[in-house]
Design a protein around this nucleic acid. Structure first.
Lengths: 246, 246
DNA sequence: TTATATATGATTGACTTTGATTGAATTGGG
DNA sequence: CCCAATTCAATCAAAGTCAATCATATATAA
């Protein structure tokens, strides 16, 4: 990581020389570090994301243990080659970026922040038009909804503020709730990214009922999930296993 | 890509020499990069479709930067309190940002790059929706045009690649030309930002005739301006004086 | 100490990238 | 309008790179 941070990238052979270890070990470590989001592999070597290049390794280690990244990674793994997806504006959805492995995907978003990352990673990116909300740099407004209604997605990924059996998925901002609602409606399969602190709470505006989307969370054993688990709405630890049943 | 971004374009043979690889590999890579939207191929080489031709790297000194800044500053000073304006994607228009002093303005743009600055400076910002072009992070496509047609602006500011009496304002990219054309049509007053190196040249697609917009440039004594000066189309040194006559 | 888990490095066959060659397509000068 | 030169995409074999497997070595825990 020191070498990569200094040079931006390096070949497998470079790293073999530097670390006095075998190609097998280097490859294994690269695979592992990539899964944690520290670097991005390419055929023959690996790079670090230039934007985060400065960031301290240990600092990110701590960050990486966070629930948010786990959830983001699980979400990103659900994206398949050729998918057309909607990604909502939000901090958790933002963390999905480095984990998206699928190719040939089309991504629609209302988040200005996400676009940089999407474009840099070579994804076909579309932005919804409208007023830019200064606080979150999310695009909101009537036009967003109107445009969304003309689109359909294989999957959609939205953040959420609170989940409750009776109130469903809720969020405090009305504009953003409408967008989430419409996105969920237009997607064949909707995913809500939520860490367990969001469970059994509710916010101002409901955008969908609990059964209308799959919850992606970090702790599949949370008591709240038992109440709503009808075998199809939770993705916990083993992502692919559970998802294959859906 | 580094080479193309610095030089605007390059032949396959140039790229073979630079990368120490075969023509087959260069061609393959060009095909791939074009499919991702990072460049545009032509017979014998490729270009990055920049909004405005980047000048020679050696020449791109303080002097030329200040040209751009002078133009940007003049343009920014034309914006008045309460205006609703369109700002085109482009490097010169980007430089306007720090000079915008007016308050209570509404800015519409198709440039993802501009949004950050606009929002940070507290302007009411709207983005046009559509496909994001990777090379320039400009939003393009049919939706952009359709939406533009429903709006009207007090003023619009667009970049240009070349200006010529017969061909008017021209730019190499067709998609972006349509956007500029529509923006100019929808504005009560249109301004084209162009340093004098753009004069008496022409690019592929015309988006307006010389008389349809006011040229903002750094050198009001350039011979080309005499040919087209009908007392209303040039803003040179004393910005406010000339503009007050319009 | 033993047993249990984890990390390493060599080997393998599969996959990817590369560059030379070919014949087709494009270009510009006569 | 044709011809020669150049550029092109397609093909193929060689080189390079990959993940998976296995046996060995090292660390950790009881």
């Amino acid at each position: 990581m020191n070498y990569l941070n200094e040079n931006g990238s390096g070949s497998v052979n470079d790293l073999v020389d530097i670390t006095n270890s075998s190609t097998a070990t280097v490859r294994r470590d690269l695979t592992h570090l990539e899964s944690k989001g520290f670097l991005k592999r390419f055929h023959g070597g690996a790079t670090v994301d230039q934007m985060e290049q400065e960031e301290d390794y240990s600092e990110k280690s701590v960050k990486n243990l966070s629930k948010k990244l786990k959830i983001a990674q699980k979400a990103a793994e659900l994206i398949e080659d050729g998918d057309t997806i909607f990604i909502d504006a939000g901090t958790t959805t933002y963390e999905m970026m480095p984990f998206i492995k699928a190719s040939n995907i089309t991504v629609v978003t209302n988040s200005i922040t996400l676009i940089d990352q999407l474009v840099r990673n070579g994804h076909n990116t579309h932005v919804l038009g409208g007023k830019v909300k200064p606080s979150t740099k999310a695009v909101v407004g009537h036009d967003v909804i109107e445009k969304l209604k003309t689109l359909s997605f294989d999957k959609c990924f939205v953040g959420v503020n609170a989940i409750d059996i009776h109130h469903g998925y809720t969020t405090p901002d009305e504009d953003e709730a409408y967008i989430k609602r419409t996105a969920v409606e237009q997607a064949r399969r909707a995913f809500v990214l939520a860490d367990s602190s969001k469970f059994e709470r509710s916010a101002f505006v409901k955008f969908a009922g609990v059964e209308e989307a799959v919850i992606i969370t970090e702790n599949e054993n949370h008591p709240f999930l038992e109440k709503i688990d009808d075998r199809t709405t939770i993705i916990g630890g083993g992502v692919s296993d559970l998802y294959s049943d859906i």
